[in-house]
Amino acid sequence: MKKTEPISRKGGFGISLMPYSAWSLLFVIVPLIFVAYYAFTDDNFRFTTENITRFFTATSAVEGDNGTVSEVKTYVVIFMRSLKLAAISTVICLVMGYPLAYIMSRAKPRAQKMLVTLIMIPMWMNFLIRTYAWMTILQDTGIFNSILSCVGLGPARIIGTETAVVIGMVYDYFPYMVLPIYSIMTKMDVKLFEAARDLGCNSFGVLKRVIFPLSLPGVLSGINMVLIPSVSTFYISQKLGNGKFFLIGDAIEGQYIANNLHFAAAIAFILMVILLVFMGLIKYFAAKFVYGGE
């Protein structure tokens, strides 16, 4: 048999990359072009920018706390609310998940596997059912309030508030934050921490100057994997928000149900562009923040 030159020296596209390239072209790129196409056409597939302008201009009257009525941009308000709730959830996931990922990565190998398993298990329960279970916990006559009243605290109104929606998002997407950070942290060399200590760093300094910068790629992909699905969710807000919180995902689903495919595509298109820019900025500033002037 002829001895072949290792492919690694050849460069270019190898055969092993072909199926995936073709697949991505057909089922990732082409669908996105379709979204753009639908977003910029009307029901008869004639070019229009109406769908896009509708997103930015549709207004509705909103009554303030003091009874004054003001005009607001419907979809911009919905989008900002989605972004706000998603951002809060992401920050909570990060603050909660980062220490856990660290603890996990420093545990004994057997314990590590066990912990990863335990984190993944809730994801195997159907997420609709998990959200349903949260309704039982959080409602006014629910388990959480029963516990509160047992300890003599008054009932807390949670379900139907933004807090409930945030709890739902944090719960559902928490594993997506922990796992990427954990997987980066397991690769860190403990000797680096010792070296930093020897060079006069305290614990906080080690965290700030060594651990955090090294774990940044994991943090970024964690942020990515929590922020994106929570911006666009439509089930959690329906169930835990008592139907009172209309998020951008609800708006897209609503337009799809109302058979306004073109406007649904327009909202999706705008959402996609904003998120891509947003994630790009986060990556850029994160890199700047860590590597400073370099």
Partner: peptide, 11 residues
Amino acid sequence: MVNPDIITGIS
């Protein structure tokens, strides 16, 4: 991964 599920689905 960056695209929301709902957009992937609709597209």
